[in-house]
Protein backbone atom coordinates (compact mmCIF):
# COMPACT_ATOMS: atom_id res chain seq x y z
CA UNK A 1 0.00 0.00 0.00
CA UNK A 2 1.52 3.28 -1.08
CA UNK A 3 1.16 6.63 0.63
CA UNK A 4 -1.23 7.92 -2.04
CA UNK A 5 -3.57 5.01 -1.44
CA UNK A 6 -3.64 5.70 2.30
CA UNK A 7 -4.40 9.40 1.73
CA UNK A 8 -7.15 8.45 -0.74
CA UNK A 9 -8.58 6.01 1.77
CA UNK A 10 -8.76 8.70 4.43
CA UNK A 11 -10.60 10.96 1.96
CA UNK A 12 -13.08 8.20 1.16
CA UNK A 13 -13.65 7.49 4.86
CA UNK A 14 -14.34 11.16 5.65
CA UNK A 15 -16.66 11.39 2.67
CA UNK A 16 -18.64 8.30 3.60
CA UNK A 17 -19.06 9.58 7.19
CA UNK A 18 -20.50 12.82 5.79
CA UNK A 19 -22.78 10.91 3.41
CA UNK A 20 -24.06 8.81 6.31
CA UNK A 21 -24.73 11.92 8.40
CA UNK A 22 -26.56 13.48 5.45
CA UNK A 23 -28.81 10.45 5.10
CA UNK A 24 -29.46 10.41 8.82
CA UNK A 25 -30.33 14.11 8.70
CA UNK A 26 -32.90 13.59 5.95
CA UNK A 27 -34.49 10.88 8.09
CA UNK A 28 -34.37 12.83 11.35
CA UNK A 29 -34.96 16.54 10.63
CA UNK A 30 -38.48 17.99 11.10
CA UNK A 31 -39.11 20.26 8.09
CA UNK A 32 -38.05 20.84 4.51
CA UNK A 33 -35.37 23.43 5.17
CA UNK A 34 -33.59 21.39 7.80
CA UNK A 35 -33.73 18.36 5.55
CA UNK A 36 -32.29 20.37 2.68
CA UNK A 37 -29.51 21.49 4.98
CA UNK A 38 -28.62 17.89 5.72
CA UNK A 39 -29.36 16.47 2.32
CA UNK A 40 -27.39 18.92 0.22
CA UNK A 41 -24.58 20.42 2.26
CA UNK A 42 -23.42 17.21 3.87
CA UNK A 43 -23.82 15.10 0.74
CA UNK A 44 -22.03 17.69 -1.42
CA UNK A 45 -18.96 17.48 0.78
CA UNK A 46 -19.33 13.71 1.12
CA UNK A 47 -19.59 13.03 -2.61
CA UNK A 48 -16.75 15.42 -3.43
CA UNK A 49 -14.51 13.82 -0.84
CA UNK A 50 -15.27 10.27 -1.94
CA UNK A 51 -14.65 11.05 -5.62
CA UNK A 52 -11.44 12.93 -4.90
CA UNK A 53 -10.32 10.05 -2.67
CA UNK A 54 -10.82 7.58 -5.49
CA UNK A 55 -8.78 9.82 -7.79
CA UNK A 56 -5.92 10.15 -5.30
CA UNK A 57 -5.80 6.44 -4.52
CA UNK A 58 -5.56 5.60 -8.23
CA UNK A 59 -3.01 8.32 -8.96
CA UNK A 60 -0.06 6.01 -8.34
CA UNK A 61 -0.83 3.99 -11.47
CA UNK A 62 -2.23 6.77 -13.65
CA UNK A 63 -1.94 10.42 -12.67
CA UNK A 64 -4.71 11.55 -15.05
CA UNK A 65 -7.25 10.11 -12.60
CA UNK A 66 -6.81 13.23 -10.44
CA UNK A 67 -7.70 15.53 -13.33
CA UNK A 68 -10.74 13.44 -14.27
CA UNK A 69 -12.06 13.36 -10.72
CA UNK A 70 -11.36 17.08 -10.33
CA UNK A 71 -13.68 17.74 -13.26
CA UNK A 72 -16.42 15.73 -11.54
CA UNK A 73 -15.80 17.55 -8.25
CA UNK A 74 -16.08 20.94 -9.97
CA UNK A 75 -19.31 19.80 -11.62
CA UNK A 76 -20.78 18.74 -8.25
CA UNK A 77 -19.62 21.95 -6.55
CA UNK A 78 -21.29 23.89 -9.32
CA UNK A 79 -24.58 22.06 -9.77
CA UNK A 80 -25.51 20.94 -6.24
CA UNK A 81 -25.89 24.41 -4.65
CA UNK A 82 -27.99 25.57 -7.60
CA UNK A 83 -30.40 22.65 -7.27
CA UNK A 84 -30.73 23.01 -3.49
CA UNK A 85 -31.33 26.74 -3.92
CA UNK A 86 -34.08 26.04 -6.45
CA UNK A 87 -35.75 23.51 -4.11
CA UNK A 88 -35.64 25.83 -1.10
CA UNK A 89 -36.90 28.77 -3.15
CA UNK A 90 -39.80 26.74 -4.53
CA UNK A 91 -40.83 25.73 -1.00
CA UNK A 92 -40.60 29.33 0.20
CA UNK A 93 -42.71 30.60 -2.72
CA UNK A 94 -45.31 27.97 -1.89
CA UNK A 95 -45.67 29.60 1.57
CA UNK A 96 -44.13 26.73 3.49
CA UNK A 97 -42.16 28.71 6.04
CA UNK A 98 -39.46 27.29 8.27
CA UNK A 99 -40.28 26.20 11.79
CA UNK A 100 -38.97 28.93 14.09
CA UNK A 101 -39.05 28.72 17.87
CA UNK A 102 -40.04 32.33 18.47
CA UNK A 103 -43.30 32.12 16.52
CA UNK A 104 -46.11 30.48 18.43
CA UNK A 105 -47.99 28.99 15.48
CA UNK A 106 -44.81 27.48 14.13
CA UNK A 107 -44.14 25.82 17.48
CA UNK A 108 -47.62 24.32 17.37
CA UNK A 109 -46.94 22.98 13.91
CA UNK A 110 -43.65 21.54 15.10
CA UNK A 111 -45.32 19.81 18.04
CA UNK A 112 -47.96 18.39 15.72
CA UNK A 113 -45.28 16.92 13.47
CA UNK A 114 -43.49 15.38 16.44
CA UNK A 115 -46.69 13.87 17.83
CA UNK A 116 -47.82 12.44 14.50
CA UNK A 117 -44.41 10.89 14.06
CA UNK A 118 -44.63 9.35 17.51
CA UNK A 119 -48.05 7.89 16.68
CA UNK A 120 -46.71 6.52 13.42
CA UNK A 121 -43.89 4.83 15.26
CA UNK A 122 -46.32 3.33 17.79
CA UNK A 123 -48.84 1.99 15.26
Amino acid sequence: MSLLEIIGGIFILVGSVFLFLGGLGIFRMPDVYNRLQAGTKATTLGAMSVILGVGISQAATDWTWILKTLVIVIFIAYSNPISSHALARAMYKRKKFPLVKSKAENMDAYREIIETEKEEVKS
Binding site: Y78, S79, I82, H85, A86, R89, K93, R94
Partner: peptide, 16 residues
Protein backbone atom coordinates in the same frame (compact mmCIF):
# COMPACT_ATOMS: atom_id res chain seq x y z
CA UNK B 1 -45.70 29.01 -14.45
CA UNK B 2 -46.42 29.70 -10.80
CA UNK B 3 -43.40 31.96 -10.48
CA UNK B 4 -40.37 32.58 -12.69
CA UNK B 5 -37.15 30.88 -11.71
CA UNK B 6 -34.45 32.90 -9.99
CA UNK B 7 -31.38 34.50 -11.54
CA UNK B 8 -29.10 31.89 -9.98
CA UNK B 9 -30.95 29.04 -11.67
CA UNK B 10 -31.06 30.89 -14.99
CA UNK B 11 -27.34 31.72 -15.02
CA UNK B 12 -26.38 28.28 -13.73
CA UNK B 13 -28.42 26.34 -16.25
CA UNK B 14 -27.00 28.45 -19.07
CA UNK B 15 -23.53 27.22 -18.07
CA UNK B 16 -24.62 23.65 -17.34
Amino acid sequence: VLFPSSTIVKAGSKLL
